[in-house]
């Protein structure tokens, strides 16, 4: 009997799309905006304050003890100007990961929102793409806000600092796509906690609050393999408009991470949504 099991499967890319998408990502985004529109704006704004508070306490509090530090290209900059771009990169990472891991997990397991969506013409690809889009939209708002704060405090010394906004989106995309794929492996809250266990040390040690030269060389190599370090360095270079060969490496790293993350999530779509 099992040998004769027939499973008509549409072939190739086209077949894959027919199985996973109706091409209606717009409806998922529309729902997202409708919810944002009816939400309490205080909740949305609160997410914006986290990096601002870090900047004020660490940048100016610790900064008063530390004085100037060595910035990109060896130029001295204030401690606040040193950590501000790093905080922007971290905020882009945290926001994107929160939306693509905890939020997706909750809507999937508890609110059963996706269960409802997937009972319609929507396919898992539509839902995933729509949710990543919404995560990036939120990231865009925060990036604009925080960049404005950095500029207002005089911590950005180049027009290139404006490029931090699209780059924040790239960083968010890389983390969001990876985060969603990883979430597909998790079934309990305890497992979800692993995400935080990875994130906190990455934030503390990715040359965010002090230069990477503080570590022995072997540790430096390890940190340089992690995504956040590339994001931090990239942002720091943009904030002062100083570029070198490594700028291209950092950018390439995130483009590659995004491509891989999207491919990975795509592969895990069915495991994530169609259990």
């Amino acid at each position: 009997m099992s040998a004769t099991t027939v499973r008509p499967v549409g072939g190739g890319v086209r077949g894959w799309f027919a199985a996973n998408s109706s091409g209606n990502v717009r409806a998922v985004v529309e729902r997202g905006f409708r919810v944002v529109g009816s939400q309490n704006w205080a909740i949305i704004v609160s997410g914006f304050f986290e990096p601002v508070l870090y900047l004020l306490s660490m940048g100016y509090g610790v900064g008063a003890l530390v004085g100037d530090v060595t910035g990109p290209g060896g130029h001295p900059i204030t401690y606040a100007a040193f950590i501000a771009p790093a905080l922007l990169a971290t905020s882009a990472m945290n926001g994107a990961l929160y939306d693509s891991t905890w939020n997706v997990f909750f809507k999937l397991r508890f609110a059963k929102l996706y269960q409802g969506m997937l009972a319609t013409s929507l396919g898992p690809l539509d839902v995933a793409a729509g949710e990543i889009f919404m995560a990036l939209f939120r990231g865009l708002l925060y990036a604009i806000g925080f960049t404005a704060v950095i500029a207002a405090l005089g911590l950005a010394t180049s027009w290139w600092a404006l490029a931090m906004i699209p780059v924040a989106l790239l960083i968010a995309l890389g983390f969001a796509s990876l985060g969603m794929a990883v979430t597909s492996y998790f079934t309990t809250f305890q497992q979800m906690d692993w995400i935080n266990i990875v994130l906190l040390p990455m934030f503390l040690f990715s040359a965010t609050l002090f230069p990477i030269s503080a570590f022995p060389e072997a540790v430096q190599w390890f940190i340089m393999a992690l995504p956040l370090w590339h994001g931090v360095e990239l942002m720091r270079q943009l904030s002062v408009g100083h570029f070198e060969a490594s700028t291209a490496v950092h950018l390439t790293y995130f483009v590659a991470l995004s491509v891989l993350g999207i491919a990975f999530t795509t592969r895990r779509l069915r495991s994530l949504f169609l259990r």
Partner: peptide
């Protein structure tokens, strides 16, 4: 499984627990 969106376009679904 291979034509999910197309199949569901003509289905109405009332799940066991309201979602």
């Amino acid at each position: 499984e291979t034509h999910g969106p197309e199949v569901r376009a003509s289905l109405g679904v009332v799940p066991q627990t309201d979602n």
